[in-house]
Nucleic acid binder design. Sequence first.
DNA 1: CTGAAAGCGCTTACAG
DNA 2: CTGAAAGCGCTTACAG
Lengths: 345, 345
Amino acid sequence: MRPKKRTTIYDIAAKLNITASSVSRALNNSNHVNEDTKKLILKTAAELNYKRNVLASNLRKGENKTIGVVVPRINQNFFSNVISGIEETTYSKNFNLIICQSNESHEKEIKCVNALINQHVDCIIISVAAEGTDYTHLQNVIDHNIQLIQFDRVVDELETLKVINDNELATLEGITHLIEQGYKRIALLEGPQNLNIFRQRKAGYLKALRKHKMPVIDELIVENAWTKELGAEGTRKLLSLPEPPDAIFASTSDFSALGVLEVATSMGFKVPDELGILGYANEPFTELTSPSISTIDQFTNYMGKTIANLYFQESENKDSVVVPRTISVKPKLIVRASTSRTQQV
Amino acid sequence: MRPKKRTTIYDIAAKLNITASSVSRALNNSNHVNEDTKKLILKTAAELNYKRNVLASNLRKGENKTIGVVVPRINQNFFSNVISGIEETTYSKNFNLIICQSNESHEKEIKCVNALINQHVDCIIISVAAEGTDYTHLQNVIDHNIQLIQFDRVVDELETLKVINDNELATLEGITHLIEQGYKRIALLEGPQNLNIFRQRKAGYLKALRKHKMPVIDELIVENAWTKELGAEGTRKLLSLPEPPDAIFASTSDFSALGVLEVATSMGFKVPDELGILGYANEPFTELTSPSISTIDQFTNYMGKTIANLYFQESENKDSVVVPRTISVKPKLIVRASTSRTQQV
DNA sequence: CTGAAAGCGCTTACAG
DNA sequence: CTGAAAGCGCTTACAG
């Protein structure tokens, strides 16, 4: 299984009685080489099935043309779509993409990041795991002069390029929509507050209530209702209250919203009449449930492309310093049956 | 933005007045180096924030510890789950994973594969795009002594390691289940027949009918019903026949099955009583529709791990020749409401 | 236009 | 245990 020796530029040079320098120049399409010999070299290279050793080339040139991506989970819709967008862009620039998943483990995240630093990638794109609080591994990326781009779940304190959703604004719109539909007691299923995205969504919720002069009712705010199961559990509690909510915003995800829907249905609450449900992320299944679930779309593929383009813009700008900045993508409220009181389905 | 020079083993050596050889040995935890100097070197390396240049190391050692993956789409459940499984295994072996998507384009697939060959990856794992018929680019992988592993959509003629689902057997079981439920006119929505997986599923369908002495009715076989839209279109035609089918096997995917369900519902056919629906792939949404859709689960994460392990088994086996072989994973029929005639939902 | 030479950062036989 | 040297495969100033 160990490879036989591959064809190198020396093999080509030897065969043609010229030097490796010329071969290299021809292969790089330099114009400091005779047109005819260039053709001959290219022809011979093809015959010998030559493939440039990118490792050697990169080592010599001090470049790598590789971007590393670290996400909590590859197989989550949001992330796989963002990665797909990143890939489309990096591919068009002839860059490689190395992918790691942290599995929401802070420890694995650190290992992934260090592996990417060792690999001398040009850029690391990351959405952090839910766990951590210490981010020296990310500071380390910066210290190695590797471009760091955070997206979605970003560490606010780190001054890097960031691409995020405007979670607060999207939530504000979502809750406002609920209020306009006549919902009066709106509950919040919140996510781990160490992640900025969940803090922002909570902020949007509170802001919307304040704006419409509605009281914030503590018993309607459920901590850490992150998964379908936890969403279901939280919903059971909420709907068992003496005064249950008439709407639930599952700020963590559509999976959580699905848990809400299942419990509500099984407890005999009519959605959307007796209970409105708003999710987050526009997972494909949200339009398939009955009733379909209102949610918030995050333009994932577009985010991916934006992230990758951000890197290429910066890197073309070699001399100047990178100014830390944040690109905020405005998500879109998708109104479906689960919150459409006026127009029953 | 161009990196300042990074710390190398020479920097460490200079600082300690020793040679790079010793530094390298210490860093590689060789025992041909004094314990105390080793400690000193490690300490200094940490202080100088040293990270090994993996490119240089790999070039020298003639290894790369990188596996390339080429799939039609990263953001499809099946593939992202397989990739996730691959990643878990490669990560545990300290291998990098480079990911490309062909977007179902044969041309892009060729470019991806060539890029990976240039990159001198140790192994290429591929599920081919729907388009192509010519596979010299894959032969090329083999010619470069790169381990090639095909999965799911494999090119039969190429003698490589293969990890597949037993599509025929799974389909046989699925259709048998339909027959046992009393369905008599079972239609097939088939996929592009240049892909082995769709040929196998068709074969399973035909086999099941023959086994139960049921006639094969040409007008019940719809070509190329690959997407939700095409599935819907095919279903419209089928259900408009003078003698419409009483069950439809959407062999291409659950998305196609979803198209069937929507059209059937809108045309007033009762599922599962008047029309049974069987999908393929166990997409998460299949348990959320009403009625829920019966389908076939492919153990995707497990497949991913199996693929990666196959590579590592082979590579540990350096001397012996790789024997082309196929690992067939038996998928599982998931019976849900859309085919459960006896037990209505 | 072409060659000889140095060097990217590392590893590893070869001496001692 | 440690050093000097060669080499992985390529690129690129420097001469000519």
